[in-house]
């Protein structure tokens, strides 16, 4: 009995060790310094993963993203600043690697297009509302003659009289 118990405890311990080593393996590429890691992630957040293009290399687990994160980490350790690191990536992968596209003639439509569309939409809306308002006020004046007004008054009086009863 006692022997069985020992085996159970030992195997449980072994499993725990195994689990720990698996975790350690996954965490291996991470730097031990949390401040450094935070900087790596901050810069990685500005870089697009070119394999899964709607993710940053901070979010992505693609092999290329892991490699590029390691590259970023090494460059920080080597004393490079954020601009230098992003330039390094742009030289190799082009502007597309920047998750926040630079403002330049080729991206004017991208940056300012939505505002222009919004302004146009707003303009159309205002014109529409104005013309509608003008139409309704004009029709009011055209359609109600003094006779009609009197009829409205008497009708309104009748209904209010009815309610009072």
């Amino acid at each position: 009995m006692c022997f069985m118990r020992l085996i159970q405890v030992l195997s449980a311990g072994l499993l725990l060790l195994l689990a720990a080593s698996v975790v350690a393996n996954e965490a291996a590429p991470m730097a031990k310094d949390p401040v450094l890691e935070a900087r790596v992630m901050a810069i990685s957040d500005e870089l697009r993963c070119l394999v899964c293009q709607n993710q940053t290399i901070a979010d992505s687990d693609a092999e290329l993203a892991v490699d590029l994160r390691n590259q970023v980490r090494e460059m920080i350790v080597a004393g490079k600043n954020e601009d230098e690191i992003i330039d390094y990536m742009v030289v190799r992968y082009g502007d597309f690697i920047r998750y926040r596209p630079p403002v330049q003639p080729t991206t004017y439509v991208l940056w300012f297009g939505p505002f222009i569309l919004f302004a146009v939409g707003l303009g159309v809306l205002i014109l529409n509302i104005r013309s509608r308002r003008r139409n309704t006020s004009e029709t009011d004046e055209e359609q109600l003659s003094t006779d009609e007004r009197e009829r409205v008054q008497t009708l309104l009086k009748q209904t209010s009289g009815d309610e009072n009863k």
Binding site: V90, V91, R92, Y93, G94, D95, F96
Partner: peptide
């Protein structure tokens, strides 16, 4: 073809 990111090296020296 969004995969075909234009290479910034075209017309430049190969690394």
């Amino acid at each position: 073809k969004p995969r075909e990111v234009p290479s910034p090296f075209i017309g430049k020296s190969a690394p």
